[in-house]
Design a protein around this nucleic acid. Sequence first.
DNA 1: AGCCTATTTGTTATCGATATCATTGCGTGT
DNA 2: ACACGCAATGATATCGATAACAAATAGGCT
Lengths: 340, 340
Amino acid sequence: MPERKKNGKATIQDVAAAAGVSVMTVSRSIRGVDGVSSQTRTRVRQIAKEMNYLPNSNASALVRSSSKLIGISIPTLFNEVFADMMMGMRRTFEQAGYSSVVDTTDYDREREKRFLERLLAWQPAAIILTGTDQPNETAALIKERNIPCLQIWDIAEKPIDLCVGIDHQKAGLALGRYLAGLGYRKPAFIGRPMGSDTRADARFKSLETTFAEVGGAVPRRINVSSDNDFNLGAEGFGQIDWRDPPDLICGLNDHVAVGIMFAAEKAGRSVPEDLGIAGFNALGITEVLPTRLTTMETPRRELGLVGARNLLARLNGVAPDPVTALPCRIVEGQTTRQMA
Amino acid sequence: MPERKKNGKATIQDVAAAAGVSVMTVSRSIRGVDGVSSQTRTRVRQIAKEMNYLPNSNASALVRSSSKLIGISIPTLFNEVFADMMMGMRRTFEQAGYSSVVDTTDYDREREKRFLERLLAWQPAAIILTGTDQPNETAALIKERNIPCLQIWDIAEKPIDLCVGIDHQKAGLALGRYLAGLGYRKPAFIGRPMGSDTRADARFKSLETTFAEVGGAVPRRINVSSDNDFNLGAEGFGQIDWRDPPDLICGLNDHVAVGIMFAAEKAGRSVPEDLGIAGFNALGITEVLPTRLTTMETPRRELGLVGARNLLARLNGVAPDPVTALPCRIVEGQTTRQMA
DNA sequence: AGCCTATTTGTTATCGATATCATTGCGTGT
DNA sequence: ACACGCAATGATATCGATAACAAATAGGCT
């Protein structure tokens, strides 16, 4: 019967005793660093396995003052975008032997900071934050400890450390110009209240710019608070003042846009003739809807992959590009007029 | 200027020195345990804040051989179901001061086990697993260390420790009987390959049982591998042999069912007269589609909440019910015939 | 053989916090 | 005044691993 301590946990000491070697030999054998004969290593590993020995990461992290944990902060898991990016990253990290501590912030910077403090207490190998608009205080917290940090989804000229993202303003402009080019002049935007999603705000701003350029109307903004994006779109649609109807509605994202689509259908508005609808992100649902939504495809999975790769490079001492922007692509759908 | 060590991290020793007290006084002050005058506590906290001191959780976890980490293992983040449950749990844990280490297993038990080992190495306060069909080896790993463990989503008669979930077999039977009651007799099921999702398999089995009861055809099963559930449904639909058409198609879940809906529409099949379609879960999308999908509503958020609450109770020494099953509800949609 | 280098193994100090027990100081009752 | 109890604070051992250095063993070369 293998030996155990009171709470059922075998320690490195127990393994050493059982194998008749020193703890260092066990440590080296388990970690696979050299300095042990392959004979001993095999034997020690065998014994460790029999004893159900698992190394204590806390002890290891304490003495090395760095752990195999990566802290990830994202606004919400409900958004496919973040789930996509997470997935892109997680695979890579897992292969490299890292675990992820995830916290969701609900777009609340205060919560993000609290989370960050809790996380830093674990001496993580790296930190990943969503977006680049963290307050200075948050950034300082990380810089001060010089922990590798990846900011993902947005880009910034001067990231905390690394950033990989898309240029939301540029993407918004491109989409806006495309839509203006189709002849639309009275846009509306359905989203969450200003300030709750800075990226959406940036895109809204781009709309303003674009339509000012072509002499269109000032975009109206309709704000709705809802957990469910589909409902958000539908509700927002309901709030539109039809005495002065828009000829185009942009959704905060595709789910909102889909909510708008169905609401418009129910309300009997003809799309895309009288009313154009556009989304953002090219989410999964748009690939199966009978009517293809006009949207902007964002490379989420790639962002995660590239981000993770860059971060791993940094962890291995290589210095990757501090700023990486990936391109987006307009999806010319059937919810807006066709190009002349 | 506050003092710092080489890598910019102030330790409890530094704070103690700066405050002119012993480390124990600092420890007690920071943690808020009593044994310090409120005067000293305030002063120490003030100094600690000025020095940007953050306690080292690794040291703390090491000496207490337990950490404020909760390990969560879920199959994938892409599935709204798991995201919902996560959300329900995370809120509760966060408030209680716990952080979550999340790993996704892609329904791979081997990966789950590897993850679990990595996780146990952190001496987590508790473990959460999805489902109840872990191999004995995995269960042993947890029991042996008697760490509180919550199995969520399924129920089992003898959980590892606690479980909170729905009775998938019962839910499948209820849905099957409802559908059979509407007069359908030749069901098909579109899902992933057998074995990759045991819950779906359980539901499929329930279909078999139900339709055997009413003398219907043996349900056909169509397996597709795809990351995207919508596409999965559409592809599965494409594989149906229409020389012997089913009169009912059940999707692995709502997204698959939606994929089927659109594919059926494109193919010109009349729903629900010639062909019924049913999903599972009552996901967000079903609330906005113009045609309401027949499905089974599962209480994901509640599962997360109740699960988290029970687990916290266990962590606080109270013994909650080991098995909690929450009820599901049939959503009578427009993709199946109406009750006579 | 005799010496030297390489390989394998072991010893000791250390990481930063907390539990436990020890100490100091102060007010109170008789 | 004296002993006693309680509150506030401090000293020390400890958790389980790893780094850095020390020792032992083996094999190669002249």
